[in-house]
Structures are given as structure tokens and as C-alpha cells.
């Protein structure tokens, strides 16, 4: 993990009203054998970056589409910023911003024309529109290409414009579908930075992603969705704790000599050892105690360590463990 998620920046006065509240939400498409969403319930606190993880076809996009008002649920209720989605759609649409996975912009218009168009469609006019267009171009660092047609932009620039178009009306809730998929590391870092800035300003952000490192870097609240169901949700730390075990993982400078696994097995509390080249995985009853004996054994054998970890699983391990065994959080 290279960066830690930001703390919640939700305003205390609004903390009691979640940004998004989903109750028993189900969606079954016509002709489908099983529901795309099956009684999903979710509370997304105000002012957080909320990550939605799940394998392909898990139901992430369906859920995001319902939250954006693009799909109607078969049953269940959605409240955004305290407003019932089915009853107060126009009001909700004003506080909601959406950033789709593919750049949802007009390629034959310029960046400025795109921002002006979507700004006007959000009801922004006159001096405020001019100001917002300028701010969005600045935020996307697109001032130099503002009057160039989008069709000539690189993939990264298109993503930047895609992001800031979703912000033209200063939404309080921002929903992003895989915002950094298939872009270069610089553009990815740029988008991450903008999301952190928005979070610091109090914007509630919901994003779906496949990238575990992105979720770990950005999100402090997460939900894992699989086969239309939320199988785990909570803060990043809480999720990592769910898969805590007595496993110790080591990476050595060189592979250990034959018979070294037998030495490790003799250490108190160790019950299984697996050696794969220079990588060793040791299962223990109490990793905190066993680690001392293991370090001593390595020193005696003259083996140098590259890395050693224990105590928590990585998000990827949690994700894999949960999605391989659905229904066992």
C-alpha cells in the first residue's frame, strides 16, 4: 500500500443522513434466470469515498445505473441525500454527478463546447457558466486544449474531460464507473488526486473498480458485490480484519536449502509450511508468537529476508476469498 485512504470529511450536521441509502433493492432483467441484484441493502455515509468491488457480472454497473436513475429497480428503495429517488427525481438529479466508464462526451465538439453544453443542460447559464467552465478546465488541466476537438485528445485527456464534465454543476454526490480503467499511470494518478480534492471539499464519492490497489489507496468504505448480492461492506480496515489469520508470508533473497521446511515445522505453533522457490508461507496458531522462532531459524540458516508480512490479508486476498466462496463474509 503506497498511500492511505483519507479520513471522512463529512460535515457533522449532516452525518446522520447517509449520502445514499439502499434498502432491499432487487433488479431482474426480462428473460434473465437470476436477478442482477438480489435484495441489496447499503448505507453510504456522507463525505466518504466509497468503493464498490466485484467480479465481472456481479451487479456493480446495474447498481450504479439504478443509483443514477438510468434503470428502474424491480423492487426496493433508494434514497439519495435523504430524498426518495422514485418521488423526487428532479431534485436528486441536481445533487448527483455521474462519470461513466467510457468518456461520455461529444468527440466533434471541443472541450469547452462540451462543458458549456452539459453545463447549460444542468441549468447553468451566464457568468456562472463561464466561471464553472473555466474552473473545470483548470481542474482537468485542460486549458491549453480547451478549444480543440475532443476527437484529437489522448485517452487520458478524454478521461479528464469526462471527469470534469460530471462536476460542472458541483454535485454533492459523485458516482464513477471504473474511472481509471485502461489509462496510463500519469492520468490515473491525476484522477486519483482530483478525487481526493473533491473528497476534501465534502463531496461524497461512489466508485466501482476492479483495481484493488486503487480501492486501497482511495476508498475507506467498501462493499464487495457478487452474484447480485453485497457479501461484505464496511471500512477498509474492518474488511481486511475479516480475513485476519495466522499466516506469515516471507520473501527470501534466495531459495532455502532442502529440509528447511522441516526446521520451520518444529517451531511451536507452526502447523503447515509451503515453500515455492524463494517464497515461504507458514500457517501458525498465533503468528505474533511464531514469528520470533521463524526469524531465529532464518538467521541460523544464514538466509536473508526481502520481506515479511503477517496479521492482515491484502484487499486482493480478501476479495478473492470472499468471491470464491460467496455468502461467507
Amino acid at each position: 500500500m503506497t498511500d492511505s485512504p483519507l479520513p471522512d470529511s463529512g460535515e457533522a450536521g449532516h452525518a446522520s443522513v447517509p449520502a445514499i441509502e439502499v434498502e432491499n433493492l432487487s433488479k431482474t432483467f426480462k428473460g434473465a434466470v437470476r436477478p442482477a441484484l438480489d435484495r441489496v441493502s447499503l448505507k453510504i455515509p456522507r463525505g466518504v469515498i466509497f468503493g464498490m468491488l466485484g467480479p465481472n457480472g456481479a451487479g456493480k454497473t446495474t447498481l450504479l445505473s439504478i443509483l443514477c436513475g438510468l434503470l428502474k429497480p424491480s423492487s426496493g428503495r433508494v434514497r439519495l441525500d435523504g430524498h426518495d429517488m422514485s418521488a423526487e427525481t428532479p431534485r436528486i438529479k441536481q445533487v448527483l454527478g455521474m462519470v461513466p466508464q467510457e468518456p461520455a462526451i461529444y468527440p466533434t465538439l471541443t472541450a469547452r463546447e462540451n462543458l458549456q453544453y452539459f453545463g447549460r443542460m444542468q441549468g447553468i447559464t451566464g457568468a456562472r457558466l463561464t466561471q464553472r467552465v473555466h474552473e473545470c478546465l483548470q481542474m482537468g488541466e485542460l486549458e491549453d486544449v480547451a478549444d480543440e476537438r475532443v476527437e484529437h485528445f489522448s485517452g487520458g485527456f478524454k478521461r479528464r474531460l469526462n471527469l470534469v464534465v460530471g462536476l460542472i454543476h458541483e454535485p454533492q454526490i459523485l458516482i464513477l464507473d471504473e474511472p481509471t480503467v485502461a489509462i496510463d499511470p500519469h492520468s490515473r494518478a491525476f484522477i486519483h488526486q482530483r478525487l481526493r480534492e473533491l473528497h476534501a471539499r465534502g463531496v461524497s464519492i461512489v466508485l466501482s473498480t476492479h483495481q484493488m490497489d486503487e480501492a486501497e489507496q482511495l476508498c475507506h468504505h467498501l462493499a464487495i458485490i457478487n452474484q447480485g448480492r453485497i457479501i461484505a461492506q464496511g471500512t477498509l480496515d474492518a474488511l481486511l480484519q475479516t480475513q485476519r489469520d495466522g499466516c506469515i508470508r516471507m520473501q527470501l533473497k534466495r531459495p532455502p536449502p532442502a529440509g528447511f521446511d522441516a526446521i520451520l515445522r518444529r517451531i511451536a505453533g507452526v502447523y503447515a509450511v509451503r515453500v515455492e522457490g524463494a517464497r515461504i508461507r507458514v500457517n501458525t496458531e498465533d503468528a505474533g508468537q511464531a514469528v520470533f522462532g521463524i526469524v531465529d531459524a532464518l538467521r541460523e540458516a544464514g538466509l536473508a529476508l526481502v520481506s515479511l508480512s503477517f496479521g492482515t490479508a491484502s484487499l486482493e486476498e480478501v476479495f478473492l476469498a470472499l468471491t470464491e466462496h460467496p455468502g461467507t463474509p
Binding site: P100, M121, Q122
Partner: peptide, 14 residues
């Protein structure tokens, strides 16, 4: 529809 701009407009009060 494919570019998503139609969906984006649907999320707005239009």
C-alpha cells in the same frame, strides 16, 4: 447511447 452521453443526459434534470 454507446458513448454514454445519452445516459449522462438522463442523469440530469433534462
Amino acid at each position: 447511447r454507446e458513448q454514454g452521453s445519452l445516459a449522462r443526459l438522463q442523469t440530469m434534470a433534462v
